[in-house]
């Protein structure tokens, strides 16, 4: 998956070349952050680290009990 992600990053950078040339610094920062996040997630999957990392866990912790309460009152 990481290889596919890397190739895609190169391809979308090529497609976005014109937009990026005209983009301001903070736009490029946002763009780069998204790409880095995507690569990080791809590497989690590729290197089998994802079984230890539960990305949805914070939401589970925040809203799990509230939802449970909702089911209980019904």
């Amino acid at each position: 998956m990481i290889w596919l992600a890397l190739v895609t990053v190169i391809c979308i950078a090529a497609v976005d070349t014109n937009s990026l040339r005209q983009a301001s610094r903070h736009e490029i920062t946002v763009y780069a952050a998204l790409v880095v996040l995507a690569l990080a997630m791809s590497s989690l999957v590729s290197w089998h680290l994802w079984s230890d990392v539960h990305l949805i866990a914070p939401f589970d912790a925040m809203f799990g009990s509230m939802t449970k309460w909702l089911y209980e009152i019904l």
């Binding site: 998956m1 992600a5 998204l34 995507a38 690569l39 997630m41 791809s42 990305l55």
Partner: peptide, 8 residues
């Protein structure tokens, strides 16, 4: 790309 990576 981020959605794709996040979905998996």
């Amino acid at each position: 790309l981020l959605v794709w990576a996040g979905s998996i």
